[in-house]
Amino acid sequence: MGGKVTCTLGEVKNRADLIIYWGGNPADCHPLHFSRYTLNAKGKHVPQGRKGRTMVLVDVRETPSVRFSDIFLQVRPGKDFEVVTTLRALLKNRPVDEARVAETGLTLEQLQNLVDRMKNARFGVLFFGMGLTMTRGKHMNSAAVLTLVAELNAFTKFVSMPMRGHGNVTGADVVMRWTTGFPFGVNLSRGYPRFNPGEFSTIDVLVRGDNDAALILGADPGATMPQPAIDHLARIPTIVLDPKLTHTSRLARVHITTATTGISAPGTAYRMDEIPLPLKPILKSPYPTDEEVIRRIYEKVKVKPAWSPAAYAKVPCA
């Protein structure tokens, strides 16, 4: 059933001789990635740095990352899942339909060559970006590369890692897991955590209009989400906590200015490989931290009666 085979970035730096970027543009989106962790870094077992590594880029279009790569494979938009599934078959020397492979924009020969490179790597890594995870197939595209990489370990050492958006997305994921058991898409309305992406993930909840209030922390959905989700946020009481006025603040009923975490508020940020890094504030802020605001809201909420049938009798259903 696949799984997730990964490592911290230092392992990539110290060992990787084959680096694959899939559906991302690291040269523009993660400018320090090449020099610090991957392509150009000199590692313990890759002392020659760039010369000791091969980089493959898989994407639907040419980006500035292409000129850093040794091999660029341009896949047709929406065909990533087909390509990865084909690679899984080739890995096991199983038959594939050549004509249908060609529909992906890549030839069987190119894919066979990629599989051979993967199998023969000493230590391979596959970084996958939003070009894979946010396009047709979404979570199944991620599952496909995760499974491919897990299966490659029957031949050699291979790991994969998602390249996520900015901000402490990973931190939210990590904390949700230890407090609720689930990484995202969690619903607590029945008093205990339930998980069902698609049902409880934010975009889906907003698009269906399943919620009648919203508290937005460390995000700007008003700038990034589909229009029906934004319209719903404007319709319901929305509260935004943010150091600056965001697109979401403009459509919210309440905006509370908070101190910038990492600059004026302490905490922990989790790097994309889940390594926790301390945030050490360097400035004082006149504004409260997110934590303080939430704590104060919670103190007020806590004194309200619990939502039991008795409590319900006094509070008419909306």
Binding site: G78, F81, E82, T85, T86, R88, A89, R94, P95, V96, D97, E98, R100, V101, E103, T104, R136, G137, M140
Partner: peptide, 27 residues
């Protein structure tokens, strides 16, 4: 639409019309 039968190990899918297939299905 796309990717019918992806990663299936057993079982039968019947389509009443022609459908697009993954490269990993053999005629």
């Amino acid at each position: 639409e796309l990717r019918t039968g992806a990663w299936m190990t057993r079982g039968t899918i019947v389509s009443l019309t022609r459908i697009p297939l993954l490269p990993t299905f053999a005629y």
